[in-house]
Amino acid sequence: MSKAAVRAHTNIALIKYWGKADEELFLPMNSSLSLTLNGLYTDTFVEISDAFTEDQFRLNGQLQSEKETAKISHFLDLFRKEANRNEFIHVDSVNHVPTAAGLASSASAFAALAGALNMAMGLNMDLQTLSTFARRGSGSATRSLFGGFVEWQKGSSSKDSMAIPVDDADWDIGMVIVAVNKSAKKISSRLGMKQTVETSPFYPAWVESAEKDLVAIKKAIQVQDFEKLGQITEHSAMKMHGSMMGAATPIIYFEPDSIKAIQAVRELREQGILCYVTMDAGPNVKVLCRLSEAEKIKEKLTAYFSTEQLLISGPGKGIRSLTPEEAAEYDWSLT
């Protein structure tokens, strides 16, 4: 029997990943860059034993359906094959992120699971190699293995489509998350990507522009130019959503409160507070800002949203093992 428990933080893409070049291997059409956040994370415990008679998957304390467990088993098989092992595995995962609400819960979830499997099976993969495995569960999970600003290089194959750390973001970087709607979205990212790639006439321009934005944003990070960083981030998000709206059946994740949040941020900029919006495949708005100004921005946004809808986060770290004391809070025994 072997066990491990790992924490991974979610990440928010500043240069977005949208669209797969390979549906099976989760190879992206373009490279991307994200910021890992300390305020949202997943803790995952895995236990491997030849006494188990089937794989089992619990999420937030609830035993999952056969269909959901089959998806996880497919991911577990990648590690079983690599380790040349065939035991069944029990997975217990707790998301401190609303699931499937456009807040990147799958990124932290599969990064934590990949990290726990790597430890429990004694594979000892380095994080860049491990990112090629995490990618097979969720593309954005590739980036959640590292902290700060992280690039996911699209690569040309499953072996080199991986994440690399760019910068620890320890220069007054923060984010205010506006949770417009924490419910699961009606159109999954996977389906939304497929429809956009296949039917939007704007999509080729999106891919070309994303590659240029990646070069520009890395230069801004290198010289710690926050204003340029924010401008590129906001433009990237709006271009991605524009490409979705151009799909044959338009994909619109915006809700009225999403627009309200975007307008509020623009008003804050007019008042001299540098902050910029980004949105993933969901209605929730993330406000990139200086961490030192996050409380002020949150206070301004309470004119439109309840305090329960607003979360401040600084940069997050890469994956790490849970201590026995932390694991015990979930009734997970590591001994």
Rank of each mutant, 00 (worst) to 15 (best):
Y41S: 03
D168N: 15
D167P: 10
F202R: 11
A179F: 02
I48R: 00
S321P: 14
V94D: 00
Y41T: 04
L123A: 06
V223H: 09
A328E: 12
D213S: 15
R190S: 05
H74Y: 09
V197E: 01
A8S: 11
S292G: 09
A303K: 10
S138D: 01
I232Y: 03
F79L: 00
R266F: 08
D50C: 08
P256E: 06
S65H: 06
S140T: 09
D50K: 12
K219A: 10
A264H: 02
L145C: 04
L117R: 04
K3I: 13
K239E: 15
V265N: 01
L322I: 08
S258C: 05
G137S: 05
F133I: 09
A120C: 08
N118T: 11
H90L: 03
A109G: 15
Q309N: 14
M240N: 08
L63M: 12
S49R: 06
I312W: 10
R135H: 07
G192Y: 06
L334E: 02
Y253H: 05
Q128H: 09
E308F: 12
I177P: 05
L268Q: 03
E82G: 00
G137L: 01
M119W: 07
F110K: 00
A116C: 09
G147C: 14
K3Y: 07
M162E: 00
T44W: 00
V215D: 04
Y41C: 03
